[in-house]
Amino acid sequence: MTVDFRGIASPPPRITLLHPEDQIVQEMLDGWRNQQLSRALSFQTIAQREQIITRFLAFTNEHPWNWSPALVDEFFGDLRSTSGVKQTTLRNYQNTLSLFCGYVSDPGYGWTRVCLELFGTHPTQVCFEWNTATHVQEAEAGPGKRAFTKVELQSLFDRADDETIRIARHNRKGWLPAFRDSVVFKIAYAYGLRRNEVRHLETVDFTRNRHARELGSKGVFNVRHGKAMKGSAPKRRSVLTVFDWTPEILDEWEERGRTRMTDGHELLPSERGTLVAEAAFSPRFRRYRDELALSPGLDFHSLRRSYVTHLIEDGYDALFVQRQVGHEYASTTGLYTSVSSDYRTRTLRRVLDQTITDALNRKAPTP
C-alpha cells in the first residue's frame, strides 16, 4: 500500500506502513519529479537528477532526514579520488543534491512535519558554500579543449571520406553510416552546430537566401532544436550558409545516401531510418582523431569552436558570428574563439603598417 503524504500534515491514523523509510523516500522523489515537471524542465534533466540522488542514497546508506555535511564531503571526496570527475560534473552533482534538499526541507511541502512524526527528525540543507565547488569563471573547459586548425580539419574530413570509399569498395553494408558520419562532421562545422542540433536536422529546415542565389535551396538553415534556456522550449535561430561547398555536400548526400536510409524528413537518420542517437557520432569521430594522432582535446564540439574561430580569422564581423551560433552574449562567442598565432601576427602587422603609413602621410603642421 502506497500512501501519498504530499501536502498533508501527518499520515492518516490507524495505518501502519510496512517500510515507512523506503516509502517516504520514494514519495519524496515522486514529489520532486512533479515539482520539476511543473517548471517545464526536460524529462532527460529530471531523470539524470533522480539518478544522482539515488546514487547518493546508495553511497551513504542513509535517508534524507539523516543526511549531514560530513556525508556530502565523503561522497564527493570519493568521486574525485576514485572517479576523477571534472569540476563541472562535480558542481552539477552538488547543485542537484542542493536542489533536492531544498525541496524536502521546504515547510510548504510538509516533509519536515511528516518526518518529525515518523522518525523524530527532519531533512535539512546539507550543501553550503563552504563544502561545494564554486563557479568562479565563465569558461571551465579543460585546457586541452580547442578548435581545429584548418589543416587538422581537412585531414579529418579526408579521413572520413577515405573510410567511406574503402568500405564501399569492399561491398560492405557499413558504408552508409560511414558516409552519413562524414556528412555530419562537415555540416556540424559548416554551420557551427551542436551535436543535438545536427541530429535533428531535417530536409525541410533549409530555405533560399535571396542575397546569395548561387547557394540554391541551401542558403539558410533554420535551427529548430537549439540549446534551450532553463525551463524553456528549444531555442530557434537561422544560420546563413557561408561556405560555398556546403550545398554540394548536402546535395550529394541527398542523392546517394539519405534516400537509401529513410523515406522520411530526417536528413541524417540512423541505420533504421529514425532519429539518430546523440552519441552515435562519437565513436567514429574519436577513432579518426586517434588514427590521425590529433590532440585528445579535440572533441565533437571542437567543430563548433572551429567554425567560430575560422570565421573570425577570415574577417567576419564578430556580431555576425555571434548571431550565427546563437549566443546571447558576445563574451560567450569570445570564449569559443581561439585564433591562431598566424592570425594574430597578421593582425599586428596590419595595424603597424597602417600606423606607419598614417605617420608618413600626415602633413607637417604649418607655422
Rank of each mutant, 00 (worst) to 15 (best):
residue 288 Y to H: 15
residue 50 E to M: 10
residue 30 D to V: 08
residue 147 A to L: 05
residue 217 S to Y: 04
residue 61 N to K: 13
residue 205 D to Y: 07
residue 36 Q to S: 09
residue 58 A to G: 03
residue 317 D to T: 06
residue 153 L to P: 03
residue 363 K to P: 09
residue 2 T to R: 08
residue 15 I to E: 07
residue 6 R to E: 04
residue 51 Q to I: 07
residue 303 L to Q: 01
residue 304 R to V: 05
residue 69 P to M: 10
residue 296 P to C: 06
residue 53 I to K: 01
residue 257 G to M: 04
residue 290 D to I: 06
residue 88 T to P: 00
residue 125 Q to I: 10
residue 85 V to S: 01
residue 278 E to S: 09
residue 182 S to G: 15
residue 298 L to Q: 01
residue 317 D to M: 06
residue 12 P to W: 08
residue 271 E to Y: 00
residue 154 Q to W: 07
residue 124 T to D: 14
residue 324 Q to P: 02
residue 120 G to A: 12
residue 307 Y to G: 01
residue 313 E to W: 05
residue 163 E to Y: 05
residue 247 P to G: 07
residue 289 R to Q: 05
residue 263 D to R: 13
residue 217 S to V: 12
residue 219 G to W: 07
residue 320 F to E: 08
residue 69 P to I: 11
residue 153 L to A: 05
residue 194 R to Q: 03
residue 262 T to M: 08
residue 101 C to V: 06
residue 364 A to W: 10
residue 286 R to N: 09
residue 365 P to C: 06
residue 142 G to E: 15
residue 236 R to L: 00
residue 116 L to S: 12
residue 347 T to M: 13
residue 15 I to N: 00
residue 28 M to P: 01
residue 114 V to E: 02
residue 230 K to V: 15
residue 5 F to L: 15
residue 62 E to V: 13
residue 360 L to V: 09
residue 270 S to L: 03
residue 62 E to Y: 05
residue 79 L to G: 02
residue 358 D to S: 08
residue 175 W to I: 05
residue 58 A to S: 15
residue 190 A to T: 07
residue 44 Q to S: 14
residue 228 A to D: 06
residue 266 E to V: 03
residue 12 P to G: 04
residue 85 V to Q: 01
residue 348 L to I: 14
residue 34 N to R: 13
residue 160 A to G: 08
residue 198 V to P: 02
residue 252 E to T: 12
residue 198 V to G: 02
residue 190 A to D: 14
residue 219 G to Q: 05
residue 5 F to G: 00
residue 337 T to D: 15
residue 55 R to Y: 03
residue 279 A to G: 03
residue 341 S to C: 02
residue 354 Q to V: 04
residue 241 T to I: 09
residue 356 I to A: 08
residue 112 T to S: 14
residue 22 D to C: 06
residue 36 Q to M: 15
residue 137 Q to R: 15
residue 327 H to T: 08
residue 261 M to F: 04
residue 19 H to M: 08
residue 305 R to W: 11
residue 264 G to R: 12
